[in-house]
Amino acid sequence: MTAKAKAVTTVPSFPSSEVAKKLADELVVSVKDLATIQGIGLPAIHKELLEKAIHIDSHTIVEILCVLDQVVGFEVGQDAVRPGGYNSIEEAVTDVTARVGKLWAKHYTEEVAS
């Protein structure tokens, strides 16, 4: 007897907190690495680091999106990132999480419809 995949009949709730945390954690690591290379000082307090005005290139964010794939259950592509980048980790997390939420709704709405 083979197991059948359970069909999705409703759009599941978007795990926004988990997406935001995973993204913030990865961005903190990335920003710290870049700051070390560039000799930029960063705040030691986590909340201040999230809010610090520092440019984060959109390519940097695209490179770490794969950490979200397992959380959301599909490949998150560059559509989740605003061209031009962001001015803080907090801004990036807020925008990318919202964009992934829209991709989530589209992905699972199409899955329910099929």
Rank of each mutant, 00 (worst) to 15 (best):
A35N: 04
I40L: 14
K47Q: 14
E51P: 06
S58D: 15
E51G: 01
V67W: 05
G41V: 06
G39F: 08
V72M: 02
D57H: 15
G73Q: 08
I40S: 13
D57Y: 13
H59G: 07
I56A: 05
C66F: 11
E51S: 15
G73I: 04
I56C: 00
L65K: 03
G39M: 10
L68M: 09
P43N: 05
G39Y: 09
I54G: 06
A44F: 12
L34M: 09
L68I: 04
C66M: 06
K52R: 14
Q70K: 15
I45E: 15
V72N: 03
A80F: 03
T36Q: 12
L49N: 01
A35R: 03
Q78R: 09
D57F: 14
C66I: 10
I61K: 10
H55K: 14
L65N: 06
L49P: 02
I54P: 00
I40C: 09
I56Y: 13
G73H: 07
I64D: 07
L42D: 12
L34N: 10
T36S: 14
G77Q: 01
D57L: 12
A80I: 00
I37C: 08
D69A: 05
I45T: 13
L42C: 03
F74K: 02
E48L: 09
T60C: 04
V62Q: 08
P43C: 07
G39A: 05
G77L: 03
E75C: 05
E51A: 12
L50R: 03
E48K: 13
L50N: 12
Q78D: 11
I45R: 11
T60D: 03
A35S: 15
E51Q: 15
A35E: 02
L50F: 12
I64K: 09
I40H: 12
L68P: 06
D79G: 00
L42V: 03
A80E: 01
K47G: 05
E75G: 00
E75K: 07
V76H: 10
C66K: 10
I64E: 06
A80T: 06
A80K: 02
G73N: 02
K52T: 14
I37Q: 12
V72E: 06
D69E: 12
V72P: 00
G73R: 09
V72Q: 01
L42K: 08
H59Q: 14
H55L: 00
F74P: 12
V76W: 13
L68N: 06
C66Y: 11
L50C: 10
D57C: 02
V71I: 15
I45Q: 09
H55T: 13
I45K: 14
V72H: 02
Q38V: 08
V72D: 07
V67M: 05
H55Y: 03
V76R: 07
E63W: 07
V62R: 01
V67T: 13
L42G: 04
I61V: 15
I61E: 01
L65W: 04
E51V: 07
L42Y: 00
L68A: 04
G41T: 05
H55V: 08
V71Q: 11
P43E: 04
C66Q: 09
I54A: 10
V62Y: 09
Q38T: 11
A35M: 01
E75D: 07
E48S: 10
